[in-house]
Each structure stands twice: as structure tokens, then as C-alpha cells.
């Protein structure tokens, strides 16, 4: 992956920066340039909480090659308290024990390595909350 593509996403991937529309208060992750509800074009930045609830999940058994060392791995969509939803991998879990509604904690992880020579991509994964 060309580095500019990774670099540009850092605020939302590294710091979980989301946007809230100044006009109507609608929240967005990832941030947008125009509000889909009211057309507002000004946003405040805020940071997502690091906990959410599992809405749905699957276990990927035939992944793209860059994820093959992790297979089988779980992926899911979590919902934060403020209503925003996010997709990500569920790491460090027993794939047979996941449950819809389970509490998840976000943890900073390496997502892709671009073979052995490219720029490393980091972002958050979900971990079943255990402490």
C-alpha cells in the first residue's frame, strides 16, 4: 500500500477521531466533509470511547493472503455508547465463545504489513473485555 494512503487515515485509525456535525449533532466515523442528514459542512472532532458492544460477528476462514497467519480470525461490528458503529477484527478471543452483545475493548494492533518490505499499517482491533 502506498504510504500516503496509510498516513492520511492516521487521525481516525490511530486516535479514533470521529466527527460530529456542528449543525445537527449527527456523528460520523470515519469523519466526512458533508453531513448526510442536514448537509452541514462544519464538524467538531471528538475521540471515540475505547469500549463498545458486539452487534454481530463472523469467523473468517478464507482470508486474503495478508491475513493468512491469523486465520481463522473473528471480525465484527461493535456499537459505541454514542450510537456509532465500527468494523474490526476481534483478537485474542475464543472464536467459539463469542456472543452478540458481548463487551469489547479496543486495542492498538498491527493490521497489515505489506509483505516484508512495505509500510506497516496500524489501527484498533476489538478484544473481549476481561478486566
Amino acid at each position: 500500500m502506498f504510504p500516503s494512503r496509510i498516513w492520511r487515515e492516521m487521525p481516525q485509525r490511530y486516535r479514533l477521531e470521529a466527527a460530529v456535525c456542528k449543525k445537527c449533532g449527527k456523528r460520523y466515523y470515519p469523519p466526512r466533509l458533508v453531513c448526510a442528514e442536514c448537509g452541514g459542512r462544519q464538524f467538531d472532532t471528538y475521540v471515540l470511547p475505547e469500549e463498545g458492544k458486539l452487534l454481530t460477528f463472523t469467523v473468517i476462514r478464507t482470508p486474503a493472503s495478508q491475513f493468512s497467519d491469523l486465520a481463522p480470525y473473528a471480525m465484527g461490528i461493535i456499537k459505541f455508547d454514542d450510537g456509532l458503529q465500527m468494523m474490526g477484527q476481534i483478537a485474542d478471543c475464543d472464536i467459539d465463545k463469542l456472543k452478540i452483545g458481548q463487551k469489547m475493548r479496543l486495542e492498538f494492533r498491527k493490521i497489515q504489513t505489506d509483505d516484508t518490505h512495505g509500510v506497516l499499517s496500524y489501527a484498533y482491533k476489538f478484544i473481549p473485555k476481561w478486566y
Binding site: 485474542d92 498491527k110 482491533k125
Partner: peptide, 16 residues
Amino acid sequence: PTPDVDTITLSVEATK
């Protein structure tokens, strides 16, 4: 460390 863990990810979590 799993393949998605490295010195950077451990450092970020410890720092948080």
C-alpha cells in the same frame, strides 16, 4: 506476541 503485535503496538498500549 501474535502476528498483529509488535514493539510499536505494545508501546502504544503501555503508554496509554
